[in-house]
């Protein structure tokens, strides 16, 4: 009888621990997903910013201004 009770208690304990572990894993996974999502969005925004920076640096207006500057520099 005692063995049976101990066996039941042990089984329930193990089951509870397993459930807790699964739950914890779920929480960790949700946290990681959200963090990764945030990082993805942040990197995407960074890429957008870099695209715009490149476009500004290579725009005809900027290049013209730089050419004029270089010509002035050469003349001096």
């Amino acid at each position: 009888m005692t063995k049976k009770i101990l066996c039941i208690i042990m089984t329930f304990t193990l089951a509870a621990l397993a459930l807790l572990a699964i739950r914890q894993e779920q929480i960790n996974a949700a946290h990681t997903i959200v963090e990764n999502h945030r990082e993805m969005v942040r990197l995407q925004q960074q890429i957008e910013q870099i695209r715009v920076d490149i476009e500004i640096a290579t725009s005809p207006e900027t290049l013209d201004a730089q050419t004029v500057e270089l010509v002035h520099h050469d003349e001096e």
């Binding site: 925004q45 957008e48 910013q49 695209r51 715009v52 476009e55 725009s59």
Partner: peptide, 8 residues
């Protein structure tokens, strides 16, 4: 070429 773009 980008004429207008949105950044954050």
């Amino acid at each position: 070429r980008i004429l207008a773009a949105s950044t954050v």
